[in-house]
Design a protein around this nucleic acid. Sequence first.
DNA 1: ATTGAAAATCGCCGTTT
DNA 2: AAACGGCGATTTTCAAT
Lengths: 150, 150
Amino acid sequence: MMLDDTDRAILAALSRDATQTAAALGGRIGLSQPATWRRIKRLRDDGVLAGQRVSLNAQALGFGVTVFLGVKLATKGRVSLDDFERAVTAIPEVQLVEHVLGLYDYRLRVVARDLADFERVLRRRVMTLPGVGDVEANVLLSEERRPGPI
Amino acid sequence: MMLDDTDRAILAALSRDATQTAAALGGRIGLSQPATWRRIKRLRDDGVLAGQRVSLNAQALGFGVTVFLGVKLATKGRVSLDDFERAVTAIPEVQLVEHVLGLYDYRLRVVARDLADFERVLRRRVMTLPGVGDVEANVLLSEERRPGPI
DNA sequence: ATTGAAAATCGCCGTTT
DNA sequence: AAACGGCGATTTTCAAT
């Protein structure tokens, strides 16, 4: 599928604020409500707009600590990967499981109430995962999301 | 603020799909539309529901490669951090800038059309950032988002 | 239970490619 | 002629009270 500048403007606008109406968005880029809506629908149908999700404020929920873990597996057969993924997705504190290629095999985004709570998760849950070798940790200080290239 | 199981069910449902209506969501958890809507409004007012974002399908947009970069700065004064952050947010291919504590100073999520395009971004844009020391890369194979602890 | 707004269409006609 | 947009209108749905 081919995207023109109008599509890009719509995607950029929706990235900033997904709650705005088709009429308001169209007004800002010089399109009528139906035309804007048709384009949004096409972008949805083409799979470019993949969905819409709320972003939860972890701080407000009492999760003050976010840690990124790089995990290297000790053994890497197909079964090892499957076993690891099955087990890791059962840890509630894990928000994101990324299978990667490079120095590590998996990257995990983990939230905890505080550092003491994180230590518990690390020792009782992460270090006991099947096949785990090296684990590296980075504590999140701040993050900024950018619109991306579009 | 205090969350009960009903609030948790609402947050979990909205994390999966933010487009669903209060009536539909309520129906699934045994609440009326107004009751569900009031709870959602309270969660919004309390700052637990922080906003709503569309998820763009990078693949469909022609960005087939996602790479995580761990960046270590060579020099780490306040000015170095400010300079680095200013410069890195000007790279369109960077979707996410995470300031972290640990082996690395920053973690970047970078998208590119393909590996050749990524090499260009890495050499021309990332390696020329002010104060950059070591850079480590992990190529994303797949990722799975989880609801988190809520 | 109600209302007012917005989403989600449709048809038609003009323009551009 | 195919694709797209504007305009006007309608129906349906849903947020909000």
